[in-house]
Design a protein around this nucleic acid. Structure first.
Lengths: 237, 237
DNA sequence: AAAAATTGTCATCAAAATGTAATATTGCAT
DNA sequence: ATGCAATATTACATTTTGATGACAATTTTT
């Protein structure tokens, strides 16, 4: 995750978007906005925000619909959602929570309260999954320090290679096509040459292969599967 | 899914249909076309395409209506729909998302973008059905990792041999003619010399026979049936 | 503002896979 | 055993696919 979490604000009223945007800015978040459910959906698929602030009362009542859709789709299910609503009616709350929304803020709210809730949700969602280091032999990825270590010494690599390795280490022993890797590492709807994945695989391999002093070649963990894609595996071919 | 996904293009303008058709062809998709909502509906029921590209602005505004109908009907609800639209009008978008359309592409679009989006949507909709590994004695085929293992050791083989073995293991104890094998492994509408199948059978046997350390010859599972074809069987001839 | 790092693309090389034809071998009926 | 047809194997030219270094554009750091 980037140092400053990226929050998507979805509301049809420009004034509210601006107000929240300023509040988040002050609190050290980056933010983008969308005024319709579709804009929001496209943005989420493309940008993968760290959290979505979603107005309940979007035109056509599509806020709840969008939330449901996001939670149903595996690709977006893990993105936390905070619902914004003017109503205080109980069954709305129940409905929202039903859908899998992570929290619920009723208008009017103070910027301070909103920020506090956002931080709480982010802490919950990022703390659970991402803090545990992953280790394979003497190759260790520590998301907390955002570092890759081989034999306890840091390995230099670019951000893209880091994300690539992270994806592989969290999805071992499976082939992924170049397309799939693009989706996961660069985000959906980013159009790259197919070969670009090869190049970054190459860079990652290079970084890993020169890392060990004990002669182990960690780049062998990243295997080419001809005609299919790539695979991270501890079993050699 | 068939080797080449079948895409239905629904648009009332022949020029656009052709343009898209060519783009899809180049990308390795098969495509069929329909110019009216009714045609499209019939085609969908009939052919069960893997994805529908649906023009928003069909005469009578029936594009959206068709989408809604398809998503409401259980038989067709699982077929992904990508909407093509010239407009960026907001309420249209909201409506479409409401209906359950899977993605949107606004005209004009580049063929590349269209293809990328199609792939992304297809991956999402089909990727969920993960195949389970198949095992016969100590010969195991795992589609997820795209690997063949004998006695827990990976076996090297080319993509074609992999597909061939996959076909056999999913269709055991039956004879298949060379023609039939060609259809299944290479795809229909591919013409090959009959003997080519023999060669690949040979390559597969070779890969399997040298795989075991315990003296078992797994190539014996692939049996020649003189005058008929080949058979994958655990029983001896 | 300058320097350094990162990025995506392309051209080129190398390796692997493919299909075919030629040749060898096998199984079977006689 | 013999001859024949079917299948197996081999060798090879061609095609496909992946790896890699160079490069320009962009972004980030200094």
């Amino acid at each position: 995750m980037t140092p400053e979490p990226n929050i998507l604000i979805v509301d049809d009223e420009a004034a509210i978007r601006d107000m929240i945007g300023i509040a988040l800015d002050t609190a050290g978040f980056r933010s983008t906005t969308a005024s319709t459910a579709l804009d929001a959906h496209v943005n989420i698929i493309d940008q993968r925000p760290d959290l979505v602030l979603l107005d309940w009362m979007l035109p056509g009542g599509s806020g709840i619909e969008l939330a449901r859709r996001l939670k149903r789709d595996e690709l977006t299910a893990s993105i936390p959602i905070i619902m914004l609503t003017a109503k205080t009616s109980e069954d709305n709350k129940v409905q929202g929570l039903d859908v899998g929304v992570d929290d619920y803020v009723t208008k009017p709210f103070s910027p301070r309260e909103l920020v506090a809730r956002i931080k709480a949700v982010l802490r919950r969602s990022t703390g659970n999954l991402k803090d545990k280091p992953i280790r394979v032999f003497d190759l260790e990825m520590d998301p907390a320090s955002h570092r890759v270590m081989v034999e306890d010494r840091p390995v230099e690599m670019g951000p893209t290679e880091y994300r690539l390795l992270n994806f592989f280490m969290t999805h071992p022993e499976k082939v992924y096509s170049r397309d799939h890797i693009q989706d996961q590492v660069w985000g959906a709807n980013v159009y790259l040459e197919e070969r670009t994945v090869d190049v970054h695989i190459g860079r990652l391999r290079k970084a890993l292969s020169s890392a060990s002093k004990t002669g182990i070649n960690y780049s062998a963990l990243i295997q080419t599967v001809r005609g299919a894609g790539y695979r991270f595996s501890t079993r050699h071919d």
